[in-house]
Amino acid sequence: MTDQVTFGQVLKRFRQNNGISSRRLSQLVGKADAYVSQIERNLIKHPDAHTAYELLEAVGCHKEQIEKILTDLKIADEKIFIDQKVFKEKIDPFYKVYNGIISMENGKPHTYFYDMEVIRMYEEIHNIISTFIIKDHSKAKVVVKNIHSLVTKDKEHFEFYCAIHQNDYSKLPNQFKEQILHEVNEIYKVGVNK
């Protein structure tokens, strides 16, 4: 592939060859109706690798073809493809959540596409939480139980958990962190007592 070819051009060719509308393809990967159209018009120049993989898979590309396209277009730079088995072995605690809520559509497993930085961060979080459980079991039990109830209940709860963590709260000054905690606690009290 030449440097002039965009992911949007490649996607459009496969999509049209398979008779799938851009709106329908957007829906198949859980995106807004205009998402694919925006990619094809180069308004979204750099879709994330996982979504790019899902889009190509939905238009009928096979695994090897997808990997080549994403690598050639540098969407796959410094990333690795991990099939279900390797994903389960590498990131087992999250496997059931992703497998049950995100990845299985119509009984069809997806190939995962992760960079090593994400895996390294996951392992670091895992180690911190393990230490937290050992050092302060009572507090850890409440925190882990609440995280568990959000990420394992259903897709809506999982999406809420993800939405909460879209912001990097470590960048906020302490006064804003305290304000957020106060507001959340007040909203929680009202919501639970309804």
Score class of each variant (00 low, 15 high):
residue 75 I to D: 02
residue 10 V to I: 14
residue 148 H to M: 08
residue 92 D to R: 12
residue 10 V to Y: 06
residue 110 H to E: 13
residue 128 I to R: 04
residue 45 K to C: 04
residue 89 E to T: 11
residue 51 T to N: 02
residue 41 R to W: 00
residue 153 K to M: 07
residue 157 H to D: 08
residue 55 L to D: 02
residue 56 L to D: 02
residue 37 S to V: 03
residue 166 Q to C: 10
residue 192 V to F: 10
residue 105 E to R: 15
residue 71 T to I: 03
residue 82 I to A: 08
residue 2 T to P: 11
residue 68 K to E: 15
residue 109 P to T: 08
residue 50 H to Y: 13
residue 141 K to W: 08
residue 156 E to D: 14
residue 30 G to S: 07
residue 166 Q to M: 11
residue 171 K to N: 01
residue 155 K to R: 14
residue 77 D to I: 09
residue 112 Y to R: 14
residue 151 V to K: 01
residue 149 S to F: 02
residue 26 S to G: 06
residue 39 I to G: 03
residue 149 S to K: 14
residue 14 F to V: 07
residue 120 R to T: 05
residue 131 T to I: 12
residue 94 F to I: 15
residue 189 K to V: 09
residue 114 Y to C: 12
residue 133 I to W: 02
residue 180 I to V: 08
residue 100 G to I: 02
residue 163 A to R: 12
residue 19 G to F: 01
residue 124 E to Q: 13
residue 11 L to Q: 04
residue 86 V to K: 15
residue 63 K to Q: 12
residue 37 S to E: 09
residue 165 H to P: 00
residue 191 G to D: 00
residue 114 Y to L: 15
residue 75 I to R: 07
residue 63 K to V: 11
residue 160 F to T: 10
residue 99 N to V: 00
residue 78 E to R: 07
residue 191 G to R: 11
residue 187 I to H: 14
residue 120 R to A: 09
residue 67 E to G: 00
residue 148 H to D: 13
residue 71 T to F: 05
residue 126 H to L: 10
residue 147 I to L: 09
residue 59 V to W: 01
residue 164 I to F: 09
residue 34 A to G: 08
residue 10 V to K: 06
residue 12 K to P: 01
residue 189 K to N: 11
residue 147 I to Q: 06
residue 91 I to G: 01
residue 159 E to D: 15
residue 150 L to T: 00
residue 6 T to L: 01
residue 1 M to G: 15
residue 87 F to P: 04
residue 108 K to T: 14
residue 171 K to E: 03
residue 138 S to H: 14
residue 50 H to F: 13
residue 37 S to F: 04
residue 60 G to F: 00
residue 29 V to L: 06
residue 16 Q to K: 10
residue 82 I to N: 03
residue 68 K to N: 13
residue 111 T to S: 11
residue 15 R to G: 04
residue 67 E to V: 15
residue 126 H to D: 12
residue 65 Q to D: 11
residue 185 N to T: 09
residue 184 V to E: 01
residue 104 M to H: 12
residue 166 Q to V: 02
residue 36 V to M: 05
residue 38 Q to M: 14
residue 140 A to E: 06
residue 68 K to W: 07
residue 138 S to L: 10
residue 80 I to R: 13
residue 177 K to T: 08
residue 154 D to R: 11
residue 142 V to E: 15
residue 7 F to P: 05
residue 65 Q to S: 08
residue 106 N to W: 01
residue 87 F to A: 13
residue 22 S to C: 02
residue 119 I to N: 02
residue 152 T to A: 07
residue 103 S to L: 14
residue 132 F to D: 04
residue 108 K to W: 04
residue 35 Y to F: 14
residue 67 E to S: 08
residue 142 V to H: 10
residue 113 F to H: 07
residue 172 L to H: 03
residue 77 D to Y: 05
residue 7 F to M: 05
residue 35 Y to W: 12
residue 103 S to T: 10
residue 11 L to Y: 05
residue 64 E to S: 10
residue 35 Y to D: 07
residue 61 C to S: 06
residue 140 A to N: 05
residue 168 D to C: 04
residue 60 G to K: 02
residue 160 F to W: 07
residue 81 F to C: 10
residue 78 E to A: 10
residue 124 E to N: 12
residue 63 K to W: 01
residue 70 L to R: 05
residue 111 T to K: 07
residue 183 E to N: 14
residue 162 C to Q: 13
residue 91 I to W: 05
residue 17 N to R: 09
residue 14 F to N: 03
residue 15 R to I: 03
residue 37 S to L: 08
